[in-house]
Amino acid sequence: MKIWKHFVENVIMLKILQAAVMRSLRTAPPLPLVFLLMTAGAFGAEWSVKYNQQEICALKGSTVFMNGTFTHPEGLTVTETFWFIHPVKGVKKTDLSKDPDYSGRVEFFTDDQKHFSLKLSDVMKKDEHQFCFRIIKNVNKKRGWGKPGVQLRVTELHVEAPEEVTEGETADLTCKTTCSLTDPTFIWYKNGRPLTTKTIKNNQLHLQTVSSEDAGSYSCAVGGSQHLRTTAHSLRILQRPSQCPSVPLVK
């Protein structure tokens, strides 16, 4: 009976409080819309992670940087940040710096302006993954990460060119990649020495009216990664067949 009595009393008190709240709402002035928008932003909309590039093409053996910025609401603190690969929901994210495949090859950077960066050295073909930035906050150690991340593609250079050309003809040699590098400057070499007098346009070397002097070994590289030069390609120059002199007809 005592339990039932307390229950009835609580229901009565709840109805009294409900009536008081309704009277207060009818008499109180409406809240300004700007306050509601600021409140919504402070608890969610201000969280963001933005990458400068969502896809990067890098040369095998080179060093690549992945950069971006993040924001968070005032009053919250970021306690830890790191990078990981292969984001899968429900699967634990492994800090790349603790991954044996990346130990000694990765460095993480952040600053007071909320810029972040990943430096990956000695890029390998097996590094073709999606890289994501991870944030851990001070509120219940809540975690978040920037989706979809940065997709890394890895390529090598190789020379595409004919093996032989006849004197007097033209020849085009192309420095090929399997993905598009960011603003590359292509450098061409003949017999190990940089070419400066030939016509170079984008990733192509154009030989106009070739002669025997154009025979040799050609290779290419990208500015800033000259040590990653391609395997040399040998170009042979064939002599143009000599024409037989005209012989006057004997009557």
Rank of each mutant, 00 (worst) to 15 (best):
Lys2Arg: 02
Trp4Leu: 12
Trp4Asn: 09
Leu14Tyr: 01
Lys15Gly: 06
Ala20Arg: 10
Arg23Asp: 06
Thr27Ala: 08
Thr27Ser: 10
Pro32Ala: 14
Phe35Gly: 07
Phe35Lys: 10
Gly41Pro: 00
Gly44Cys: 01
Trp47Ile: 12
Trp47Thr: 06
Ser48Leu: 05
Tyr51Trp: 05
Gln53Thr: 05
Glu55Asn: 03
Lys60Met: 07
Asn67Trp: 00
Gly68Pro: 05
Pro73Glu: 14
Glu74Cys: 04
Gly75Asp: 05
Phe84Met: 07
Gly90Phe: 06
Gly90Tyr: 09
Thr94Arg: 03
Asp101Lys: 14
Thr110Leu: 11
Thr110Tyr: 09
Ser117Cys: 06
Leu120Tyr: 02
His129Gln: 09
Asn140Thr: 09
Gly149Asp: 06
His158Val: 11
Ala161Met: 11
Glu163Arg: 10
Glu167Trp: 08
Leu173Met: 15
Leu173Gln: 11
Lys176Met: 14
Thr177Tyr: 04
Ser180Thr: 15
Pro184Trp: 02
Lys190Asn: 12
Asn191Gly: 03
Arg193Gln: 12
Pro194Ser: 07
Leu195Val: 15
Leu195Pro: 05
Leu195Asn: 09
Asn202Leu: 14
Asn202Phe: 07
Leu207Lys: 05
Ser211Thr: 15
Gly216Cys: 09
Tyr218Ala: 08
Ser219Asn: 12
Ser219Met: 12
Pro241Met: 11
Gln243Met: 15
Val250Tyr: 02
